[in-house]
């Protein structure tokens, strides 16, 4: 009798314990189901439906349209370039504030800036760029007014960037704007990894006769590689999925997949939401391929990591 009572109390305690462990993550799962899984399923189903709800491959076949292929190409181009530039630039900034001899105050300023800039995207970022290096932006105006006279008294203003073929409202401008939030993201991600490089490894390498280059070639980069790869993927993803900055900066004049999706779903002239779903599905496929590639590469390069 007493024994069965004890068992009951113990079972109840166990259930409460399990419930206690799960209760914290229940809102997360609800959120994921409502805002990720259900929309993804809707997207997937929608990509194979026409406007009347009938099953069709037309949307998928429609992705072969030259304008759409170009949009994918430009999106990929901008994403690859900005993730590479952001990775390299961010890596060197992170290096300077961790392993380099940059003063501590600079580190604090750069980390705060990075935290802010990495989250500064969309319309405000586009506006900031227009206000500074737009056609009538502040920096553009200052540079435009720096003029020189030659011996013959002929005046030239060589720093007028728009005269030299630059435009903020094209791929180059977009790349610049994206790099603005990409490199701080890299700084935030790679700084802890650089801090994880032990001073003893460097000293052991020196002690064994290696040069600085050999240390980076054989020890530091291979150790950092999984983090760099992961950060690069994140940067690629954030550029590939960006919409508001490009839309605000170029007014939709540039072909990006996200802008095309926006046009289809907003119901502009000839808008086809189901084609929009197919476009989004294409993006998911590209991201999946990228992540698979990343996973394979990571497995190959990080066999030494504890599993």
């Amino acid at each position: 009798m007493e024994n069965s009572q004890t068992q009951q109390v113990s079972r109840r305690a166990k259930i409460l314990d399990v419930l206690g462990n799960w209760i914290g993550v229940i809102p997360f799962f609800i959120f994921i189901i409502v805002f990720l899984i259900l929309p993804s399923m809707n997207l997937f189903i929608g990509a194979f439906r026409d406007l009347n709800g009938n099953f069709t491959f037309d949307n998928i076949i429609g992705l072969k349209d030259p304008a759409i292929l170009k949009a994918y190409s430009v999106s990929l181009q901008v994403s690859v370039i900005t993730s590479l530039v952001g990775s390299v630039f961010g890596f060197f900034v992170a290096y300077a504030i961790t392993i380099g001899k940059a003063p501590k105050w600079m580190r604090n300023i750069l980390m705060t800036f990075s935290g802010l800039a990495a989250n500064f995207g969309g319309v405000p970022l586009a506006f900031a760029f227009i206000a500074t290096i737009g056609r009538t932006g502040l920096i553009t105006a200052i540079l435009k007014n720096i003029c020189f006279s030659n011996a013959a008294g002929v005046q030239s203003c060589p720093l007028d960037i728009y005269d030299n073929g630059f435009t903020l409202y094209g791929v180059l401008g977009l790349t610049l704007a994206y790099t603005y939030f990409e490199f701080p993201l890299m700084v935030l991600i790679i700084t802890p990894a650089l801090e994880g490089l032990k001073r003893d490894w460097r000293e052991a390498s020196d002690n064994l006769g290696a040069s600085s280059w050999q240390y980076w070639r054989y020890v530091a980069f291979p150790v950092l590689w999984p983090s760099i790869l992961g950060a690069g993927l994140l940067l690629f993803g954030s550029a590939f999925g960006a919409y508001a900055t490009a839309q605000a900066l170029t007014g939709g004049s540039i072909y990006l997949v996200t802008i095309l999706i926006g046009q289809q779903i907003r119901g502009d002239v000839l808008g086809n939401p189901n084609l929009g779903y197919a476009l989004a599905l294409g993006m998911v496929v590209i991201m999946s391929i990228t992540i698979t590639g990343y996973t394979i590469l990571q497995r190959r390069t990080a066999r030494w990591l504890k599993s």
Binding site: K198, D200, W201, E203, A204, N207, G209, Y218, V219
Partner: peptide
Amino acid sequence: NKRNVGMVFQSYALFPN
């Protein structure tokens, strides 16, 4: 790196990769 002196560290300092 030019001294030819071997050193053993408290943390072992083996290269993990």
